[in-house]
């Protein structure tokens, strides 16, 4: 039996220069349901798939609540930080709550001290620094959550991805969480349309990307979809439950189109490399295998 002795804390490198605890934290994000974010020239949008009780992890050692779906409520996936700023999460929701509380404090003190909505890049680098400290301090655990931060400030709309490693990067479109590769594929194929897209089109792009992350028999529903919008002259607005219904109606098809796109939605170039198949999508291959032996 292998024993990996380089993952007992988050600060010890493996001989190959890896921090396993940090990589495990990155894995925790992939266990959470997906969140997608994208920006136009005027708006930033985040959409998220809410997992029901059965899929929510409650603590770091990955204990899973396995309650009947109907008994559990849906998770909170999008959190308002300030009038101009909100986040969507994937991974451990309690960790996200701690981070969002911190961001809210930062946003409030910016308003209190400078009468200024906090610049998006600054609040994001503040949580980046906070997360990085956990990767270099003995006895601490990296955050088990990834965030998409959508905001609008003096320099326009922004979308950042935050990772437990402390990495923060700005994107035109980004997706995190389970099967998010499918959403990224959609974003990569369509991102050239985002800058000029209307708010409605932008949200629909987001929902289409999100829909591609669904498991085979699942659909986007008013109960499991959250939408957050912010932009020019638009304060951060969260659409949940009944408020989502209108958006889903505009979307039409609410099931995953991955690998079996209906002809009307198929793009010219997509037809060649998207073979029509009913087979389940290939297993994602980007999992970490900690298979080092004791040196």
């Amino acid at each position: 039996m292998f024993r990996n002795s380089y993952d007992n804390d988050s600060i010890t490198y493996s001989p190959t220069g890896r921090l396993f605890q940090v990589e495990y934290a990155l894995e925790a994000i992939k266990q959470g349901s997906a969140s997608v974010g994208l920006v136009s020239k005027t708006h930033a949008v985040v959409v998220a798939l809410k997992a029901s009780g059965e899929n929510i992890y409650i603590c770091a050692d990955l204990v899973v609540i396995r309650s009947a779906e109907e008994l559990g409520s849906y998770q909170k996936k999008i959190i308002r930080i300030d009038d101009h700023l909100g986040i969507a999460l994937a991974g451990l929701a309690p960790d996200a709550r701690v981070l969002s509380n911190f961001m809210r404090q930062q946003a409030m003190s910016s308003r209190m001290i400078y009468n200024r909505p906090i610049p998006i890049s600054r609040v994001v680098s503040a949580i980046g620094d906070k997360a990085q400290r956990n990767t270099q301090t003995y006895g601490r655990r990296p955050y088990g959550v990834g965030l998409l931060v959508a905001g609008f400030d003096e320099t326009g709309p922004h979308l950042f991805e935050f990772q437990p490693s402390g990495t923060v990067l700005e994107y035109f479109g980004a997706a995190i969480g389970a099967r998010s590769q499918s959403a990224r594929t959609y974003l990569e194929r369509n991102f050239d349309q985002f800058p000029e897209a209307s708010l409605e089109d932008l949200v629909l792009h987001g929902l289409r990307a999100l829909r591609d992350t669904l498991a085979q028999d699942k659909e986007l529903l008013a109960q499991n979809t959250s939408i957050g919008i912010v932009g020019l002259d638009t304060k951060f607005t969260l659409y949940d439950n009944d408020d989502v219904r209108g958006w889903l109606e505009k979307l039409g098809n609410v099931g995953s189109t991955r690998g079996r796109r209906p002809p009307e939605e198929r793009e010219p170039e997509a037809t060649e490399d998207a073979p029509v198949t009913d087979a389940p999508p290939p297993e994602e291959t980007d999992t970490v295998e900690p298979i080092e032996t004791d040196a």
């Binding site: 001290i113 400078y114 009468n115 610049p119 890049s121 600054r122 003096e154």
Partner: peptide, 19 residues
């Protein structure tokens, strides 16, 4: 230091001074 295109202007400096 941030060099991120955000500069403190009069209302922000005023709020800071008031505090």
């Amino acid at each position: 230091y941030e060099q991120d295109g955000h500069n403190l202007r009069a209302p922000h400096i005023y709020e800071y001074l008031s505090r």
